[in-house]
Each structure stands twice: as C-alpha cells, then as structure tokens.
Design a protein around this nucleic acid. Structure first.
Length: 885
RNA sequence: GGGCGCUUAGCUCAGUUGGUAGAGCAUCUGGUUUACACCCAGGAGGCCCAAGGUUCGAACCCUUGAGCGCCCACCA
C-alpha cells in the first residue's frame, strides 16, 4: 500500500526532480532530421541581476511552450544564457567602488574590467540557480553569454561586415549624452520625466526669445522665426549687431517653418551643439556648431567667466548677470516640460555633438544582396533597393513574423518607420570593444576580427584601438544565431534557426526584438523567429508597478519557498493575456497552491483505488463513458489553445476539468463503483496536459503512480495525448449530464428546504426515456444526493406532500412531509412558475418574429424551439403542482 | 500633438466568428461523508462606463463622448 502525505510538499520533491531531469539529459535535444525543431532563445537576464517577476513570467511561459512541444514530438531546444548588460553592470560595479571611495579611473581600464568579470561570474551562478528553481527545462549544455569569446567573435564579424557594406560609419553628430554614465545613449534609451522649471524670456536685440536653458545661449547667433510671422518679417534675412552676454555680437535672422508662432514669443535662437532640432537646422543652413557644455557636464571656455562650472551653477549665476545687464525680460516660474533622462540612472541627458559610430538604417541595397540561399525574405515585396529598415518592416508586414498580440504590429511599424541612425558606440569600459584600429603613423583605419598589432598599410606597430565599446543591444541583437555558433556553419545553426518563438516583455519590443529582426535579416538573410509572444508587466493588486521604494514587490523566490514553483507558475500564466499587464498577489498564488494540492489528493485517492482493485472490468459504466468523452474534449481544447498561444485558457481548462469534473463528480462516483483502468487513463491524461504548467507536482505523482516498477519513466518525456474518437460517447454523456442535473437539483432542494444534511430522505424520479440509465446509476444518485430510498419509474402519480422539481419531462418528488414548510414551498413554486413564464414569453416573442425565423441560422432557431418545448413542459408540471397545493 | 489599450459580480479577470452573462477569491448558510478544511454541499451578488446607430437579436460590430492606463514625438 502506497503511503502518501495528505498534503503535497513541494520542497520535498522539486529540487530532486529537477536534478533528475537535468542529469538524465531531458533538456538537451539531439538533432534529429526526422523531427521538427522547436526552438526558443531565452531572453538573457542581466548577468548581475537577481530573478524578478518579469523573469519568472518569461520562464513560466517559455517552459510551458517548450515542455508541450517536447511532449508533442518536436526536437525542442530552449537555449539559456545571460547578458553582460554593459551600462547596467558597469554602473553596479562603479557603485560598489564608490562605497570604497574609488572610481573606475583609480583602477584603470584593465583592473576595472577584471573586477567586473569577477562580479559577473558570481551573479551568473545566482541567476542560474534561480532559473532552475522555476523548473525551467532549458538546455544548460548550450548556455550562452553575450560577452563570451565566441559571441564576441560574432559581434566583431557582424561589425566588420556592416562596416564593409558601408552600414556602419563614424560621424560627428549630435547624440544623447549621459554625464553620469559618461556615455552616449541610443534614442530609445532616453526616457522623459515631466518637470516644472523656470522659463526665461530674454532680450535678444529687437526680439525676445524664450528658453528654459539660458546657459546654452552663449554662442547663439541665429534667430529663427516663422516665415508667416508678421511680427518679425521685417528682420528676416538681416544681420544686426546686438548686445549679448559678453558684449556685442552679430546675429542673423532666418525664416523657417520649424518655428512655432504660438510657442513663447515665436522667435527662437538656436544652439546647434545641444539640441537635436537646432543641430538639424544648422546642418540645413550651414551654421556654425559651437559646443558650450563638455562631456563632463561642465561649461566650456566659450562660457567665459562661467567656464568650468556645472550647468546648474552656471545657470543661476548667468541669470543674475543677465538681470544686471537688463537682458532678462521676465521669468515664468511654472513652466512644465518633459525633461529627457537616462533610462539607466535617471540623470538628465545632455544632447551634445561628438564623434560616434552609427548604423545607417536607410542605406539601400539591391535585391540580390538580400536574396540569400533559398530565403523568401522578399516575398511579395516590390522594388529594387531596400534598407535594413525596409526589410525589418517587410518581414512583419508580410506575416513572416507574427506578433502576439497583433495590436503591437502598429507600434512596431511606427517605431521602425521613424527609426534614425542607431548610435552604437558607448564610452564605457564594460562591453565589446569596437574592433577598429587606427595607425598613428599613416592614419590608416582597420576593422579586424582579432586583435592586431601591425598596420597592414605601413607596417607600423604604432596602433591604437578605438576606445569605445558597443551598445549592449548590438550583441543581444545577434542572440538567436550567435548562440547557435554563428559565424561557424554549425549543425545547430542549420537545424535550429530560425527559431520558432521569441517570448519577452512588451517593454523591450524596440530595444531588443526589433533589433534582432534587423540583425538577423541583414546577417543571415533569415528571420530570427516566427512568432513574437509579448507578455505584460507584473503589477501589484492595486495595479501599481512593483518597486523597492514602494515596498510592494513580490520576490518570486520567496513565493516558491512558501508555496512551491508550480503555484507561482500557474499564477503568472492563468488569468493573464499577452500584451496586457497582470496583477499578482499572494492570495492568487495560494489559490493555485490549493489546486496543486487538489491534484495531489486526486492522484492519491485514485491510486488507492487502482492499487486495491485486482480485476479489470471491461464494462464501461455511464459515468466511465461520460468521463472518457469529457477527457477527449479536454485534450482537444487544451491542445488547440496551446497551439494558439492561449496559455491562460489552456490552464484554466485543466484547472476546471481536474477540480470540477474529475474530482467533484468522477471521483465521488468512484466511491460507489470504480473502474481502475479508466481512473488510470484519465489521471494519466490530466497529468500530461498539466505537466507543462505545473511540472513538479505532475512528475512527482507520475513517479508515485508507477508504484514499484523498475526503470521508472519520466513524465517530461511522455507523449502528448491524442484524441481517441472511439472514446467519445455522445448519448451516454448526455444522459450522465442529466443525471448530474438531477443530483444537483435534489441537493439544492435539500439545502433550500433546510433538511438536516445527515438525514437520508426518500425520492421518486419518473425518468421517462432516461429510466434505464437512472436505474443503472441509482446507487450513485442515492449516495451523492444522500438519499435513503430511491424509487425510479418510467412515470407515475404525483406524490402528495412533496417538494417537486422538473427537468424537461423528468419529474422529481421528495416527500418531505413534516420536514418542510409547505407555505414556503408554495412560494418557491410560484417563483419558479414566474421565471418560466417570463422565459417562455421571451422565447415565443422571438419565435413569432418572422424576421428571426427566416434570417437566423436554422440550428439557432431549432435550439430555441427545443428550449421552448422543454420550458413549457416544466411550466405545466409546476403549475399542476401549484394547483394541488 | 500622434497611436494603442482598458472600463463586465465587492476584488482580480474570462467572455474569438453577435443567440437566456461566467470563473477564482471574498461573502452568506450548512457540513469531522472511503482523497483533500490547501476540503465538501448550497445560496446571494451584474441597466456588461454613457449616448446614439446597424441587426430579428449587441457585453460583443459602427459612431461619439467620459474616466483610467501605456507607448511614441516634442515643447526652442
């Protein structure tokens, strides 16, 4: 006799089971040409982070997909890894140094990098174990790291190729500069914060200009006004001498439509070195571009007496000076605008010009360039020349890549359409060093895959490698193929790429997903993945973002320790839908803990019955046929939902079936009469279907279910259930469902009539066509409805002094004389009659409507007719009963 | 300013080709029944944001509006 604990204890099983799966190699697919591959590249967590709910969600969803496909016969690869997360990691280590009163410059580049490496190695271990805790069935033997030698080589290879194609260029341009990180940022790495500040109206010769940043204005020499602005028409095209901060300067007036007549005074001076719009204007008209603020965030020499001050101090002092000069017209105190800030550290961004590396997103290449191998990347695409942007757009537009939910298509297109050249150089140390070498002697520039020491042109050894590193997204953009061995033509790459699903949060659609599409189509001529599944953000019960400062964060690892990994997974998947934020709270997790326990007990109970029964009956009872049929429906629904990426619906179905069908009915019925073969079959199916969602408890049960067999199989590698048409019994199912209705009715009457729950009462059922089925199940009905005596007949007399209920033409009487207040019963009947009358009226109205009968589909009309017929029968019975009272 | 999403039971959410509104939690009543109190049985609870329109029929489709949230652009 198997002795299992009354409650499932996750701690007792999880680690052990995970270890077994891993050691036995279930996570590691062998390439098999006869099988279809199913690949997911795991979005690499930052190498320095710890697991948060976003990761937990990602892991839960991906593991469900992978486990399902693995069981369904695919060669399933889930490739894990970590990201070196350039700026984020460097910031973290700098923070640690800061506590010791040091900066990275105190250590120097090499020593600092050693320190970061050490730190990363430690954190990677943490992350790996946390990923395991979630039950992730990923292939650790293929684990990757964005900064490994192999991936770095891939990075250099792509860089070189893009450089040779003229896609990567170095340019002196205006960029987003974070003075704290001491680095550039890509456009989408800048976020905005609504801020209230002062707005200064300053006298500039004959006009008044408005600005929130007077400290940038030292060298402004051009006034822009709108061509239609009557106020300033007289000045346009003129040059005049005006009094400015450090004496007289010459200012030019130019008309351009960018000037907004409504904004401020309608006149503006421009600062090309520190504003994107102004920079473009300066290029358009060929104005001088004079830097005012340095990369350290301090004022340059052009600021005269203010040189060397930080921006804030300068502003205060400058405004005082200008007030003294009478240059300040007025100051608006409540100016609200969006301040651009660094998404990593929150420091306000300083746009400034500098030499940087860019990817040209608009350079066009001829068709032949894109048509590689046997790809149909360009399918249905007209035209002769395409940029990386065009192709990235096309693969989504043409449906080669599908985004779930598709409402994000528009967002994607909009972003792609407006994409400007991508600044890829960063001035931090932690990251892939740009593989460009300059010869100090002859000035020759070389882009090399491996480190070089000699100039290829003049043989000088006086070389200097570019100091900058690459944007972290450059390397992660290669993730789907660099992790499979590219640029080597590996078997993995050939077999597993393109991958099938990219699953990640919608918040990195641009940062990452879009860039992967760009890089994969450019480099391989292949899409990186077929489907993008975007999950939402996890919020607290009030819908707030979880954050340390609010203290409302839930640590997935705490929850796993408390409830187990299965409940955490279930609560992150069920009740959520792709692209939509979800709310998580402990009660929800504990609810799924209860479910896991329910499943455990259902198995425990089933096993007792299976074990204690020697003979196997080949006869199928009504209940057996019913549960078999319901099981087939379940298989079909769950499979369809999973194929459709509707994980929540799939999980919900499993939950509902397990609890409300299998446990509440079939197991209860089994207490009267049980069929071990059927019990085993249904339990088996449930375990398999539930396994992707709650892998641990299902595997634990599956092991126990094999009792003392040698060479136990593991659920993880079992075959996904198929529907068996010969196990569908429609008539029996209908009959069983009516019997369930009858039992429910009796229970309901008992409760409403306040009959002592332990009292075994008597019942009459006139079953009409269902009579023989009822007779077969009479013991079941007696038990589940708690009846002492049950009289079943085809039809018969009304029973005096009884409470009655009618289901279609079936009549139920409970002789409760002395136990029930018949006045109340009379009221109940009246109410019932009213409900039925209203219902019948509504149905008749509908059926008398010629439009309905002629226009609605036949099956709908027929359905309504049946409903009417059965309601009428019931009403007649109810009314008869009322008349008798 | 441009775009997207949400608004359904007290709470969190389903409701996919338009056909008498659903689940979980919470709540109420009752319960030591051959698994499970992390349980069982039963009940109550909804002008499906508002107003129009299409339709025989609308939570669902269309228009407008309100409230909430998000993304993008930009404010010199």
């Amino acid at each position: 006799m198997t002795e299992l604990a009354k409650a499932y204890d996750a701690k007792k099983y999880e680690d052990e089971i995970y270890k077994k799966w891993e050691e036995l190699g279930f996570f590691k697919p062998e390439i098999d040409p006869s099988k279809k591959p199913f690949t997911i590249s795991m979005p690499p967590p930052n190498a320095t982070g710890t697991l948060h709910l976003g990761h937990a969600t990602m892991l839960a969803i991906e593991d469900i997909l992978i486990r399902y496909k693995r069981m369904a016969g695919f060669c399933a690869l889930w490739l894990p890894g970590t990201d070196h997360a350039a700026i984020a990691t460097q910031n973290k280590v700098e923070g640690i140094l800061q506590k010791e009163g040091k900066t990275r410059h105190d250590l120097g580049r090499d020593k600092f990098l050693e320190k970061v490496k050490e730190y990363v190695a430690n954190s990677q271990d943490t992350i790996r174990n946390q990923v395991r805790k979630m039950g992730s069935s990923c292939d650790w033997s293929r684990e990757a790291y964005t900064f490994s030698d192999q991936l770095s080589f891939a990075v250099n290879t792509v860089f070189k190729r893009m450089y040779q194609d003229g896609l990567i260029y170095r340019g002196h341009r205006i960029v987003n500069w974070c003075p704290r990180c001491q680095s550039t940022l890509a456009d989408d790495e800048v976020t905005y914060k609504e801020t209230k500040s002062r707005f200064y109206y300053i006298k500039y010769g004959p006009v008044i200009i408005g600005t929130a940043r007077p400290e940038t204005k030292f060298a402004d020499k051009v006034v822009i006004v709108h061509p239609d602005d009557k106020r300033y028409k007289k000045y346009v095209g003129k040059e005049m001498e005006i009094d400015w901060i450090d004496g007289k300067i010459k200012a030019k007036f130019v008309a351009d439509e960018v000037a907004d007549m409504e904004m401020g005074t309608g006149a503006m001076t421009i600062t090309p070195a520190h504003s994107f719009v102004d920079f473009e204007l300066a290029q358009k008209y060929g104005f001088e571009i004079i830097p005012i603020i340095g990369m350290d965030g301090k004022m340059l020499d052009v600021a005269g007496e203010f040189a060397g001050m930080d921006v804030k101090t300068c502003r205060e002092k400058l405004v005082k000076k200008m007030q003294g000069q009478g240059l300040i017209d007025k100051i608006d105190e409540d100016y609200v605008h969006n301040l651009s800030i660094c998404y990593r550290c929150g420091t306000s961004i300083e746009p400034l010009t500098s030499d940087q590396w860019f990817i040209d997103v608009n350079k066009k290449f001829p068709r032949e360039k894109w048509e590689k191998k046997d790809n149909n990347l360009l399918k249905d695409l007209e035209g002769t020349n395409f940029s990386i942007k065009d192709i990235a757009n096309h693969v989504v537009r043409s449906g080669q890549i599908k985004i779930v939910p598709n409402s994000f298509d528009k967002t994607y297109f909009h972003w792609m359409d407006n994409l400007r050249d991508w600044c890829i150089s960063r001035q931090i140390w932690w990251g892939h060093r740009i593989p460009v070498y300059y010869c100090k002697d002859c000035g020759h520039i070389m882009v090399e895959l491996d480190k070089i020491t000699v100039c290829e042109k003049c043989s000088s050894v006086n070389l200097r490698q570019d100091e900058d590193t690459l944007d972290t997204w450059f390397s992660s953009a290669l993730w789907t193929f660099s992790t499979l061995g590219w640029p080597n033509e590996t078997e993995d790459l050939k077999y597993f790429h393109p991958t099938q699903v990219m699953e990640t949060g919608y918040d990195i659609l641009f940062f990452w997903v879009a860039r992967m599409i760009i890089m994969s189509t450019y480099t391989l001529g292949e899409i990186p993945f077929e489907t993008v599944y975007l999950h939402g953000l996890v919020r607290d019960k009030e819908g707030r973002k979880m954050s340390k400062s609010l203290g409302n964060g839930i640590d997935p690892l705490d929850m796993i320790a408390k409830f187990g990994a299965d409940p955490v997974r279930l609560s992150l998947v069920i009740g959520t839908s792709p692209g939509n934020d979800m709310r998580l709270y402990e009660e929800k997790i504990s609810g799924y803990r209860n479910f896991v326990n329910k499943l455990w007990n259902a198995a425990r109970f089933s096993m007792m019955m299976i074990e204690n029964t020697k003979e196997n009956s080949s006869d199928l009872s009504l209940a057996d046929k019913w549960i078999m049929t319901k099981t087939q429906t379940l298989i079909e629904e769950v499979t369809d939902f999973l194929n459709d990426f509707r994980l929540s619906d799939a999980g919900d179905k499993i939950y509902d079936f397990t609890w409300n069908v299998f446990c509440d009915w079939y197991l209860e019925i089994s207490k009267v009469h049980h069929n071990p073969a059927i019990l085993k079959y249904v339990l088996d199916v449930v375990l398999k279907l539930a396994h992707p969602f709650s892998p641990f408890v299902t595997e634990a049960i599956f092991q126990e279910l094999q009792f003392n067999e040698e060479n136990k199989k593991m659920l993880i590698s079992e075959k996904w259930p198929n529907i068996q048409k010969d196990l569908v019994f429609e008539i029996a199912t209908k009959q069983m469902e009516t019997i369930i209705d009858i039992i429910k009715s009796i229970r309901s009457i008992r409760a409403e009539s306040k009959v002592d729950p332990v009292k075994k009462i008597q019942a009459y059922i006139y079953g009409k066509d269902l009579t023989s089925a009822l007779l077969a199940k009479s013991e079941v009905i007696k038990r589940l409805a708690n009846l002492g005596e049950l009289i079943i007949a085809q039809s018969g007399q009304k029973i005096e002094d009884s409470v009655s209920k009618f289901i279609g033409d079936i009549e139920i009487y409970l002789p409760l004389s002395g136990l029930v207040d018949f006045k109340k019963e009379f009221e109940r009947l009246k109410k019932e009659a009213k409900r039925l009358t209203d219902y019948i009226t509504a149905l008749q109205l509908k059926l008398n409507n010629n439009n309905f009968v002629s226009k609605a589909p036949e099956h709908v009309v027929e359905e309504q007719r049946q409903l009417l017929k059965s309601a009428k029968t019931e009403l007649a019975k109810v009314e008869e009963q009322i008349n008798k009272s």
